[in-house]
Amino acid sequence: MAVDKNLNVLIVDDYKTMLRIVRNLLKQLGFNNVDEATDGSMALQMLRVGNYGLIISDWNMEPMTGLQLLREVRADAKLKDIPFIMVTAESKSENVIAAKQAGVSNYIVKPFNAETLKAKMVSVIGEF
């Protein structure tokens, strides 16, 4: 069964330009219900009141990083099953291992293209 493209997506990045790029790429993929947060703590507040089907988050943010956000999400009974894609310039193997251990659903290294974004989304939410 194809994924409903009306699902709510939360994108998290402290670079406004990056939020804009990801939002545009998601729009081209047919996802128009996209909200934005500029760090982990803001994202967590939005997740606790909203109803999101996918989180796409940067890692390197202050005060709450993407990894901390991921841990908070996985520790929260209401949020723990939301697919979480980390999109980051942190490409060392220890980063990927730490994210995997924290429960990341998939991992995209910057710079990335639309094809990679789509492939990783399909891998965590299914075909669309």
């Binding site: 670079y15 990056m18 790029i21 910057k110 710079p111 293209n113």
Partner: peptide, 11 residues
């Protein structure tokens, strides 16, 4: 859009 990724990495 893809090419504009550079700004984040440069920063």
């Amino acid at each position: 859009y893809e090419s504009c990724n550079f700004q984040d990495l440069t920063g």
